[in-house]
Design a protein around this nucleic acid. Structure first.
Lengths: 355, 355
DNA sequence: TTGTATGCGTTATCAC
DNA sequence: GTGATAACGCATACAA
C-alpha cells in the first residue's frame, strides 16, 4: 500500500502538500495539485485512517451497545442511528454490539470499544456496570443511554414514558370491559420494563381492581420462554380477561400460547402489548399495542451524541422523552362483542384507531 | 489519558516491559510485573488500540455491508456474524453499513471502511461496484459475499440455492392445484432475486402452464410499494390462484393488499413466499415459505472471512450453498379445500409440515 | 505557495 | 530479565 511519502516523491512535492491536497486544508497551486492528484491515482493511494486517527485523536467511529439486533425494536434503533451518522459531512461509522442483556458481555464490549477509541457511545444498559459508566461520565466521555436508564447515573438519555404508556393500555383494557387483567413480563433489569409493570399496577389500583400475584408471570425475554410463561397464564382458573405483554417478544409468545391451546384472541382472551410491529396491520389477530418511535429514538440519540462529540453543545445532560401512541386494534376488544362478531368476516373495514 | 510511557516511569521500568506485561508477550519477573500492574491501575491506563493497530497493521475490525438492518433477514445475518466474531480469543468488532440497495452508498461505505482499515469485509453486494471488488480481490483483501454474488467476480460466498428453492415452492403450489400463479418480484439487481424468478419460470414451463407478462409484477423492495404491486395483481381478471412473493417484504405487502380488498388468504387467493418469519407460526394467515438459515449464513460468512484473515486457510475461493427448507402452512392451501374448511375454526391442529 | 520536522502511542528488534 | 529505539503513516506548527 502506497503511503503519503510515496505520493510525495512521485509528485515531486513534500508530504505536507500531499496532505493538504487530500484534506483540502490549505491552498495548493493548480498545477501542483494536478501532479499530486495524478500521483495519487497512479499509486492507488488511500489515506490511512488509523494513522490519521492517531494523529488527530478521534476516530470517526461510535459504538452502539444494544441487547439484540434481531429484536425489531433494536434494529430500528440501529437504523435510526445509522441514518443520522451517515449523513454527516464526515461520515461516522458505528460498531454494533449485542449484549443479550448480559452485564458481563456489556462490560467486555465497553472495554474493547474504549480501547478502539470510539468517539462516543450509545447504549441500552443491561444493568450493573454503573461504576464503569460513572467513570466515563467523569471523564466527560460522550455517552447517551437509550430505551432505559440506570438509577443514580445522570447521563443523556432518550426514552419513552413507559409508565404512562402502559397505564394508558391498561386503562384502555379496562374501558373495554376487561377486569381480570394479567401481565406477561420479561425478566430484565431494565427500568423500562419495571416502569411498564408499575403502569399496570397503578391503573389496576386506580380502577379499584384486585390484583393477585398469579396474574403476573415473569419469564426470560425470548419467544420460547414467553410461550411457556403465557401458557401458565392460560392455566389460571378462571382465565384472565386480558393480558398485557411488556414487550414484543412477550406478545409473540402469548399469541403462540393461545393458538397452541386452540383458544382465540380476542374471543377467549384479549391481548395488548408494548411495541408495534411492521406486520401488525397485515396479520390476525391484529394486536393493540403501544407504538414506540423506535427509529426516531435512534436518530435522536445519535444527534445528541454527535453534538456532544462535536462540542456544539455543552451543559448538563438532557433527557428526551419521545411520544408513544396507543394503536387500538381488534386484539383488545371486549370479549362479548368479539364473540357476537366472531361469525362475521373481519376484513379491514374496522380501521385501527390511534389514541 | 495515561500512556505507556507514564506507566513505565511510574513503575520505574521501560516501556518495553510495560508492553510485555500488558500483552503477556514475554516473561517478566513477578515483582516487576506487580509494580507495573499497580502503576496501570493507579493511572487508569488503557492500551490505545489505534496506536496498536498502526503498529501491528491490523485493526481487529471487520465491515458488514448489507441492505437494511431493519429487514429481519439481514438482522439475522448480522447477528450470525456477531456470534462468531465475538467469541474469538481476540474479539473482533463489526462496523455495520446499510446501503439500502444503492450502489453509490455502497461505494461510499467501501471507501470509508477501507480507509478505516478493516481487516475484512462481508457484503451483500447491491450491484455495480464490480471494479472495486475486483481490485480488492487482486490485492487479496479478505472479502466474502453473502446472500448474493456478482457475475464475473470470483469471490468467497455463502448463499442459498435460490433457483432450486423457488422451484420447489412453485412445484408445491402446482401440487396444491393452483394453476394461474403470479409473482410479486422485488426490483433488485441482486442475482438472488433473479434466480428466484428463474425458478418460477422454470417450473411453470416444466408443468406446461402458460405464463403471461401480466402475472409478473415488479416493485421496489419495501412494504408500501409491495402493497401497491400486490394490488395490481388483485386487479387481474381472472384473479390469480396463487402468488409467489420473492422476499419477506413482498409477502407483507401482498397480505396487506389482500386484506385491503376484503379478500381472504387462502380462500380467495393463495400465497407462498421466500423468507420465513419469527411470527409466522403465531399469526394468521400462516404463510408457506422458504426458510433460509439466515443466522447460519452470517456465521458461516464470518467463519470464512476470519479464516482468511488469520491465514489459516488459503487456496481458491470457496462457495457455500446452505440448505433451505420449505415450510408448508395454510396460506398455500387449495382454494376449494380452504373454502369448504373456512367455517371450521382453524386452531393449531394442522401442524406445519417441513418438506 | 510550499517544505521540514516533530510527535501521536504502540510494538518489536536488537542489545545487554 | 530488561532496556533503547526505530518504525507505523499521518497532520500540523513553524519556517521559508
Amino acid at each position: 500500500m502506497a503511503n503519503i511519502r510515496d505520493v510525495a516523491s512521485r509528485a515531486g512535492v513534500s508530504v505536507a502538500t500531499v496532505s493538504h491536497v487530500v484534506n483540502e486544508s490549505r491552498f495548493v497551486a493548480d498545477e501542483t495539485k494536478a501532479r499530486v492528484l495524478s500521483a495519487i491515482s497512479e499509486l492507488n493511494y488511500r489515506r490511512d485512517g488509523i494513522a490519521r486517527s492517531l494523529r488527530r485523536s478521534h476516530t470517526g467511529t461510535i459504538g452502539a451497545i444494544i441487547s439484540d439486533v434481531t429484536n425489531p425494536f433494536f434494529s430500528d434503533l440501529v437504523k435510526g442511528i445509522d441514518n443520522v451518522v451517515h449523513n454527516l459531512p464526515n461520515r461516522v461509522n458505528v460498531m454494533l454490539c449485542n449484549t443479550e442483556e448480559d452485564p458481563a458481555k456489556e462490560r467486555a464490549y465497553l472495554d474493547v470499544l474504549m480501547e478502539k477509541r470510539v468517539d462516543g457511545l450509545i447504549v441500552a444498559p443491561a444493568g450493573d456496570n454503573r461504576a464503569y459508566f460513572q467513570s466515563l461520565i467523569e471523564q466527560s466521555f460522550p455517552l447517551v443511554f437509550v430505551d432505559r436508564t440506570l438509577s443514580g447515573i445522570d447521563v443523556e438519555s432518550v426514552e419513552v414514558d413507559n409508565l404512562g404508556a402502559s397505564a394508558s393500555v391498561i386503562r384502555h383494557l379496562i374501558d373495554q370491559g376487561h377486569r381480570r387483567i394479567a401481565v406477561l413480563k420479561a425478566t430484565l433489569q431494565a427500568n423500562s420494563i419495571g416502569n411498564r409493570l408499575s403502569g399496570y399496577e397503578q391503573e389496576i389500583a386506580v380502577a379499584g381492581l384486585s390484583t393477585s400475584l398469579e396474574l403476573v408471570v415473569e419469564c426470560a425475554s425470548d419467544i420460547v420462554s414467553a410461550q411457556v410463561g403465557g401458557t401458565k397464564l392460560l392455566d389460571l382458573d378462571p382465565l384472565p380477561d386480558a393480558v398485557f405483554c411488556t414487550n414484543n417478544f412477550m406478545t409473540l409468545g402469548m399469541v403462540r400460547a393461545i393458538n397452541a391451546r386452540g383458544l382465540r384472541c380476542p374471543e377467549d382472551i384479549a391481548i395488548a402489548g408494548f411495541d408495534d410491529f411492521l406486520w401488525a396491520d397485515a396479520f390476525r389477530p391484529r394486536i393493540t399495542a403501544v407504538a414506540q418511535p423506535s427509529i426516531e429514538m435512534g436518530e435522536e440519540a445519535a444527534r445528541l451524541l454527535m453534538s456532544r462529540i462535536a462540542k456544539t453543545r455543552s451543559g448538563p445532560p438532557v433527557h428526551r422523552l419521545l411520544d408513544t401512541s396507543l394503536i387500538v386494534r381488534e386484539s383488545s376488544r371486549p370479549r362479548q362483542l368479539s364473540q357476537s362478531l366472531a361469525s362475521a368476516p373481519t376484513g379491514d373495514r374496522a380501521p385501527s384507531e390511534r389514541v
